[in-house]
Amino acid sequence: MTDFTDEQIERYSRHIILPEVGGVGQRKMLDARVLMIGAGGLGSPAAYYLAAAGIGHLGIVDFDTVDLSNLQRQIIHSTERIGMLKTESAKKTIAALNPDVNVTTYNERISSQNIKELFEGYDYIVDGSDNFATRFLINDACVLMNKINIHGSIFRFEGQATVFHPKNGPCYRCLYPEPPPPGLVPNCQEGGVLGVLAGIIGNIQAVETLKLVLGIGESLSGKLLIYDALNTEFRKLKLKRDVNCPVCGDNPTIKELIDYEEFCGTA
């Protein structure tokens, strides 16, 4: 019924024996279509573990190349890959780990022009982007296209993770209505980030993605998880859809995608 090869039964045996997963769940994972935005700090662990788990169709979007300063946290890449496109590097690492995974690479910078085309054909969008302009664009596109957004973000010693499930819960703008003005909030390049933090938050995104694919447990939809690495504290705040949200509220004012790049300035 689930049609596995002997090798797959062995590879996924620790999943298949879990009553919550089983052969049926593993087949769901192999059939799932997940789009990873960014092959950076969050995207590296998230994509790596999703691939190990046997997510069968993984799209990876990134326009950047591997830089030496990435390797303190971006574990899907390696020293010998410096200068290589991140999408290509990620694809190579995943191919070596699990040949079951079909990786599609998109060497593009996300904008209002290409985002709908990129999202088409994927059920789950994992936001591992590194700037507010992209995060707001991803959110709005997910709301408009009814895609589930598995959100994670990191800065210095703090990480945030949640799931935005259009029609079933709040969106990013219910939490933060607008991006911060340019220059107000430093990015990781300016402010630094503890490398391991990317692993924690990226893997929370991976776990949430798998739970959604499998339809098990309780997702982070409607809850903002905040991880404070310095004090080893996890806090969970409840978040409801704001009926006055500019994009997912009852009378939305945002009906078209916005490119914030020009005045957001947080690349």
Binding site: G38, G40, G41, L42, G43, D127, G128, S129, D130, N131, F132, R135, G152, S153, I154, F155, E158, G159, Q160, C174, L175, Y176, P177, P179, P180, V185, N187, C188, G191, V193, A198, L224, I226, R235, K236, L237, K238, L239, K240, D242, V243, N244, C245, T266
Partner: peptide, 29 residues
């Protein structure tokens, strides 16, 4: 522990001993 919608800030009263979390958007990835 319940995020207050921005449009309700004016109408949301605070009481003695309330626990407030002020959270900043974090953009890095």
């Amino acid at each position: 522990f319940q995020v207050v919608p921005r449009s309700s800030y004016d109408q949301t009263p605070l009481n003695e001993g309330d626990k407030i979390e002020i959270v900043h958007a974090v953009g890095g990835g």
